[in-house]
Computed example of a mutant assay.
Amino acid sequence: MSDYDNTITVDVPPDRLFDYLADVENLPAYLPRLSAARRHDGERVTVTAHVDLPEGSEQDVTSEAWIRVLEEGKILVWGTPGPSDYHGQLHVAVGDDEGTSRLTVELHTEHVEGAQVDDGLRETLRGIKAAVERADG
Rank of each mutant, 00 (worst) to 15 (best):
Met1Thr: 12
Met1Asn: 12
Met1Tyr: 12
Ser2Ala: 13
Asp3Val: 13
Asp3Cys: 12
Asp3Pro: 07
Tyr4Phe: 15
Tyr4Leu: 08
Asp5Met: 11
Asp5Leu: 10
Asn6Cys: 07
Asn6Met: 11
Thr7Ile: 09
Ile8Trp: 01
Thr9Asn: 05
Val10Lys: 01
Val12Lys: 00
Pro13Asn: 11
Pro14Gln: 04
Asp15Leu: 11
Leu17Gly: 00
Leu17Gln: 00
Leu17Glu: 00
Phe18Tyr: 09
Asp19Met: 05
Tyr20His: 08
Tyr20Gln: 02
Leu21Tyr: 01
Leu21Cys: 03
Leu21Trp: 00
Asp23Cys: 05
Glu25Ser: 15
Glu25Trp: 07
Tyr30Ser: 01
Tyr30Trp: 12
Pro32Thr: 09
Arg33Gly: 10
Leu34Pro: 08
Ser35Ile: 10
Ala36Gln: 11
Ala37Glu: 00
Ala37Phe: 02
Ala37Asp: 00
Arg38Lys: 15
Arg38Ile: 06
Arg39Trp: 03
His40Asp: 14
Asp41Thr: 13
Gly42Pro: 02
Gly42Glu: 10
Glu43Tyr: 01
Glu43Asp: 14
Arg44His: 15
Arg44Thr: 15
Val45Gln: 07
Val45Ala: 06
Thr46Trp: 02
Thr46Pro: 01
Thr46Tyr: 01
Val47Leu: 14
Val47Ser: 10
Thr48Trp: 00
Val51Phe: 09
Val51Arg: 11
Asp52Leu: 10
Asp52Tyr: 04
Asp52Cys: 04
Glu55Val: 07
Gly56Phe: 03
Ser57Pro: 01
Glu58Cys: 08
Gln59Arg: 15
Asp60Glu: 15
Val61Cys: 05
Val61Glu: 07
Thr62Gln: 11
Glu64Thr: 14
Ala65Ser: 13
Trp66Cys: 03
Arg68His: 13
Arg68Lys: 14
Val69Gly: 09
Leu70Gly: 11
Glu71Ser: 14
Glu71Cys: 09
Glu71Arg: 15
Glu72Leu: 10
Glu72Gln: 14
Gly73Lys: 09
Lys74Thr: 06
Ile75Leu: 12
Leu76Met: 06
Val77Ser: 15
Val77Trp: 13
Gly79Asn: 03
Pro81Lys: 05
Gly82Arg: 08
Gly82Trp: 06
Gly82His: 05
Ser84Gln: 14
His87Phe: 05
Gly88Ile: 01
Gln89Glu: 15
His91Cys: 06
Val92Trp: 00
Val92Leu: 03
Val92Ala: 06
Val92Pro: 01
Val92Thr: 08
Ala93Thr: 11
Val94Tyr: 10
Gly95Phe: 00
Gly95Trp: 00
Asp96His: 12
Asp97Thr: 12
Asp97Pro: 02
Asp97Leu: 08
Glu98Asn: 08
Thr100Ser: 08
Thr100Leu: 01
Ser101Asn: 05
Leu103Trp: 01
Leu103Glu: 02
His108Trp: 03
Thr109His: 05
Glu110Phe: 06
His111Phe: 12
His111Tyr: 13
His111Met: 11
Ala115Trp: 12
Ala115Phe: 11
Gln116Val: 12
Val117Pro: 04
Val117Gln: 05
Val117Thr: 06
Asp118Cys: 05
Gly120Leu: 07
Leu121Asp: 04
Arg122Leu: 14
Leu125Asn: 00
Arg126Ala: 15
Arg126Phe: 13
Gly127Ser: 07
Gly127Arg: 01
Ala130Gly: 07
Ala131Gly: 02
Ala131His: 00
Val132Ser: 00
Glu133Phe: 06
Arg134Tyr: 06
Ala135Lys: 13
Asp136Trp: 13
